[in-house]
Simulated scan of single mutants.
Amino acid sequence: MIAMQYSFTLPADYDMSIIDRRIRDKGPLLDGFPNLGFKAYLSARKEEFGSRDNLYAPFYLWRKPEGASDFLCSPTFQTLAGAFGWPQVRTWIIWQAEVSADIAAARFATRDILHMQPYAPLADIRRADSAQTETEIATGEALASVCGFEPTTWTRVRFSLWRELPEIGAETQAYRVGHLSLARP
């Protein structure tokens, strides 16, 4: 599995209803895309949930890396890049991903990107992050929870989908979920 996210920072006076409309109209196009676990169509408005910017920032969980490659080579992504520019696409190797049967009820998302100290004990960090991911789902707190790492910049990602936005820290980026594209059973 692999997680992927790109983000477009939009001007402070950008009409975010354009993004809402884009999500509504284009969101269903990826429903059932091959090798997709889920795609969360995410947006944040400046100063909402502490966001510093207006953002359009989809997050993907791919069952196989080929899914990410196929999407990035697709006409759908080409159209997106034509409209907003060619984004930096971040990817993370999955340590743990848990998805509840109620994922379709997600209305909010949170994402933390955490830097690792040089020579940090990766096995211990993976074990702790994976346990947190499992707990969020087992207790019913989150509807999906993903943790992983990226060994070029030595960063970790913690991403969760929620019915209601939980209390968040200053470094957490929160989003509204406009649409969820899910794998076909």
Rank of each mutant, 00 (worst) to 15 (best):
H115Y: 13
D102H: 10
P121W: 06
P185V: 09
S69D: 09
S160P: 07
R163I: 02
A3Y: 11
Y56P: 03
T110R: 00
A106S: 10
L36P: 03
G85M: 01
Y56G: 02
P58D: 03
S74T: 07
A12W: 06
E134R: 15
G27R: 08
D31W: 04
F108K: 03
P185H: 11
A40L: 11
D20M: 01
T76Y: 15
F108N: 00
L42S: 06
D124Y: 12
Y56E: 02
R21F: 05
D124R: 12
G27Q: 05
L61P: 08
W95P: 06
E150Q: 14
Q78I: 15
I2C: 07
Q173R: 13
I125S: 10
T110L: 02
L114C: 13
P65Q: 10
K26S: 05
A120R: 12
G140I: 00
W62C: 02
E136I: 05
L10A: 02
I94G: 04
N35M: 13
K26P: 00
T155F: 02
A109C: 06
R156T: 14
A106D: 03
A174V: 04
F71P: 14
D20A: 06
T153V: 10
P118V: 11
P65D: 10
A57H: 00
I113F: 09
R22S: 15
F59R: 03
L72E: 13
M4R: 05
F159K: 02
F71M: 15
R21T: 12
R126F: 13
D31K: 07
A44C: 10
Y60D: 06
L161N: 07
E98P: 01
I168M: 11
P65N: 08
R158N: 15
E167C: 13
A44N: 08
Q132R: 11
S51T: 03
G178D: 01
L161V: 07
S51H: 03
P28V: 00
A183E: 14
R126L: 13
A81R: 14
G50M: 05
D53N: 11
R184F: 03
Y119P: 00
G27E: 09
D53S: 11
G178C: 01
I103T: 05
F84Q: 08
R52H: 14
D112T: 04
P151W: 07
S7M: 05
A81M: 13
D20I: 00
V177Y: 05
L36V: 06
